[in-house]
């Protein structure tokens, strides 16, 4: 609360996420016993290459632990979450178990510092590593929200330089009067810290100790981290809280005594920082894919993106006439086709072109609303918009039937006249037979005699013949 009043956002550093390297998500743990001011101090340094997928802030004893003011050993919290490496995390109120400061755990906002200015370390949704001081507004940012965030006390290293003095000015509480904060910075003790190096790898630091007897102060820790290429780091809870767990097993020497003071026992703490196997972001791939080694493999043909939360129906994107869904383009009313690029065929309208036009005389209708374009028969039948089939049908209906009728009438007339003439002809013939007249036709094949007879009797044809 000694912070100078500044306009705008609070001072912090954002570090772009490292380029993803397949298989580089595992934690690399180094153990050290180093000399600080002539004292041998043991500890661990852990680097994580893909922090967005392998680093989590955990509530004590699992989700809901802060709300329930739980305290749990790092081992218990880490084991349930499957942590490969785990350390104690943020500060907490020992009497009540309250988590202090900001806590965002796997994209869940758990605890809010209420604008209190202490050093923060977090990872945003896009993998950006953020270190420093954050306003309330920045903590609650929804455009690129924090997926992991926790609070420490004292910004140890800022952009490759020790930043303790500036932190004391920002985070102190009447330092000159009480001396409490100054002692906190300078006393030797067990310490933990979190930060990142120049490669964008997350770095966890832990050093064993006991307040005022063993361990290191914040200056020594900052110098050690600088030698390890750390560019931004904050100090986390220390003293009896400092705990390091490797593969579910306590791997440090806690400074709190057990009830039997012969032994040392790990403290039940609040939040935990955890390094685990790569997880997808979000872990369930938004419900539209499968997480395979930290990468979402999207299901279906249209879900895309690292989180399988983007629908992609191809370059045409439904031709601006539809909505891309997980089953493909859902076309607007009046449009059809896999890309919604085709208008409804004439005679059909509506969503999916499923509704037939209900217009008189085959008039076309609006493909979107179904409103009839024209109601006059003449316009519809000869309108150029009418389909060829419809035009053919109308032509067939009028001309062909007329021609067919005329042809049939003509044939009928011919048939009638032929029958009448045949009838009249046969009647005349019969009448001639009834009159009793005979007609004789002389045979012509009579050895040529006929010619001689005809010459002798040319006047009467009946005389040469006798009954």
């Amino acid at each position: 609360d000694c912070a100078r009043v500044r306009a705008g956002s609070r001072e912090h550093e954002s570090w772009a996420p490292p380029l993803a390297t397949p298989g580089a998500g595992r934690a690399a743990v180094r153990t050290f016993v180093s000399h600080f001011g002539g004292r041998a101090v043991a500890g661990h340094l852990t680097r994580v290459a893909d922090p967005l997928r392998t680093f989590s802030v955990l509530e004590p004893g699992g989700p809901g632990g802060c709300a329930q003011r739980r305290r749990a050993t790092v081992e218990n919290t880490a084991r349930a979450a499957g942590c490969l490496v785990a350390q104690n995390g943020g500060f907490f109120r020992m009497s009540t178990g309250d988590c202090l400061g900001n806590v965002v755990s796997d994209a869940r906002r758990v605890s809010d510092a209420g604008g209190l200015q202490n050093a923060q370390f977090g990872i945003r949704r896009d993998g950006t590593l953020v270190t420093g001081y954050l306003s309330e507004e920045e903590v609650l940012d929804s455009e690129n929200p924090f997926v992991q965030l926790l609070s420490g006390v004292v910004w140890l290293i800022r952009n490759g330089s020790v930043y303790i003095n500036e932190s004391q000015a920002t985070e102190c509480d009447e330092t000159q009067e009480t001396g409490s904060f100054s002692k906190f910075v300078n006393v030797m003790s067990a310490r933990t810290a979190v930060g990142h190096d120049r490669k964008g790898q997350l770095v966890l630091f832990h050093a064993d100790g006991q307040t005022e007897q063993r361990g290191i102060n914040l200056w020594e820790m900052a110098e050690f981290l600088l030698q390890q290429d750390v560019v931004n780091a904050i100090n986390l809870d220390g003293g009896g809280s400092a705990t390091f767990v490797l593969n579910g097993t306590l791997a440090s020497y806690p400074s709190d005594h057990c009830q039997d003071s012969m032994w040392r026992c790990p403290r039940h703490v609040s939040t935990v920082v955890c390094v685990h196997e790569p997880r997808c972001q979000p872990p369930d791939c938004s419900g539209h894919g499968t997480c395979v080694e930290g990468r979402c493999e999207c299901s279906g043909s249209f879900w895309r993106g690292a989180a399988c939360n983007e629908l992609d129906c191809g370059s045409s994107n439904c031709s601006r006439h539809g909505l891309c869904t997980e089953t493909g383009c859902r076309c607007d009313s009046g449009w059809t086709g896999s890309n919604c690029s085709e208008e409804c065929p004439l005679g059909w309208y509506g969503p999916g072109c499923q509704r037939p036009c209900r217009c008189e005389h085959q008039c076309p209708c609006d493909p979107q609303t179904g409103d009839c374009i024209s109601s006059q028969v003449k316009q519809c039948l000869w309108a150029p918009e009418v389909t060829p089939r419809a035009a053919e049908l109308s032509f067939f209906t009028r001309t062909t039937w007329l021609a067919l009728t005329l042809a049939l009438v003509f044939l009928l007339l011919i048939s009638i006249s032929a029958n009448v003439s045949l009838l009249l002809g046969s009647r005349g013939e019969r009448n001639r037979h009834l009159d009793g007249d005979y007609v004789y036709h002389p045979l012509q094949e009579m050895n040529g005699d006929l010619l001689a007879i005809e010459k002798e009797q040319p006047g009467d044809v009946r005389e040469p013949f006798k009954d």
Binding site: G115, S180, V187, S241, S255, D256, Q259, C265, P266
Partner: peptide, 24 residues
């Protein structure tokens, strides 16, 4: 192993217990 209750006796506090910092 090492899972007994601790005495919480190695306290390393940045601020005095009695003080409550004002949020801004």
């Amino acid at each position: 192993l090492g899972s007994g209750a601790s005495r919480d006796d190695d306290l390393l506090l940045p601020y005095p217990r009695a003080r409550t910092r004002q949020a801004r």
